[in-house]
């Protein structure tokens, strides 16, 4: 059960090898979290993350595998996750996603489909599977990992940006639809975070380390904000970006 501060005891991470989500859970384990279910693609890396969480104090950590490029697996994955948790789940971190490579997806329909499957179709199906589960357990909290890349889509990663824009919109509507059932849905919009996923890419302004991002997100999770920006300054920056006239936006680098 979550407490008056919204601190969860049981957490499910969809995208269990996501570095940002992992650091968020590490901090939650220092608060009240004792049970964690990690769902991801790579069994070995999930087990590594699981043992780190056990060392940090989690008493029960379960891992389950799925392939997000096959959206038909979403329903079964959610079923497995609730089974592994052995009871109600207080917080779901939906952190499934890939960055992709714009140079490839520019001209490759198959790569484009795959990126949409992983970043949007699988998460959409997972939310649909979660909905009834959360309503019948009578409470819940979902944090959907979007990105500032979806707020205004840049030409340098427009396919990725478009998947996140779609996910962001879906999460907002999903949140509104379950609000009266006592389920809290928050959208997490990180900027550029130094992780394996972004290794080798040139850093954007307001880049943060994964620890900083996790700290901002954990703080946001116990707030009533519908969108968690990391770092918080990006809320203002992207308000301006979003409203820039197209001719100026196109002149910005990358």
């Amino acid at each position: 059960m979550r407490n008056a501060f919204g601190q969860p005891q049981t957490v499910l991470v969809l995208g269990g090898t996501s570095e940002i989500a992992h650091h968020v859970v590490l901090q939650l384990v220092r608060e009240r979290t004792t049970t964690v279910v990690l769902a991801g693609r790579d069994k070995g890396r999930l087990e590594d993350a699981a043992s780190e969480l056990r060392e940090a104090g989690a008493t029960t950590v379960e891992t389950i595998t799925f392939d997000a490029s096959d959206p038909s697996t979403a329903g079964a994955t959610i079923d497995d996750a609730f089974h592994a948790a052995g009871g109600p789940i207080d917080l779901v971190l939906l952190a499934v996603g890939q960055l992709g490579d714009q140079d490839i997806s520019d001209n490759d329909p198959v790569a484009t489909i795959k990126l949409f499957d992983v970043n949007l179709t699988w998460p959409a199906a997972a939310l649909a599977a979660l909905r009834g589960r959360l309503i019948s357990q009578g409470m819940g909290h979902v944090a959907v990992f979007s990105s500032v890349a979806g707020v205004r889509v840049r030409r340098a990663n427009f396919t990725y940006g478009a998947t996140k824009a779609g996910l962001d919109a879906l999460a907002q509507g999903f949140g509104d639809s379950v609000r009266s059932s006592g389920i809290k849905v928050q959208i997490v919009r990180p900027g550029f975070v130094r992780t394996k996923m972004t290794q080798g890419l040139s850093e954007a302004p307001f880049t943060t380390d994964v620890d900083q991002a996790a700290e901002t997100i954990v703080k946001g999770l116990s707030s009533s904000a519908t969108v968690i920006w990391s770092p918080p300054v990006l809320q203002g920056v992207f308000f301006i970006m979003k409203n820039l006239p197209g001719f100026l936006w196109r002149r910005l680098p990358g």
Binding site: A4, M139, S180, S181
Partner: peptide, 15 residues
């Protein structure tokens, strides 16, 4: 009904 205690925190849905 969505219920809380007097402190209005951590609501949950019950019959």
């Amino acid at each position: 009904e969505l219920l809380t205690g007097w402190g209005n925190t951590a609501p949950s849905l019950a019959r």
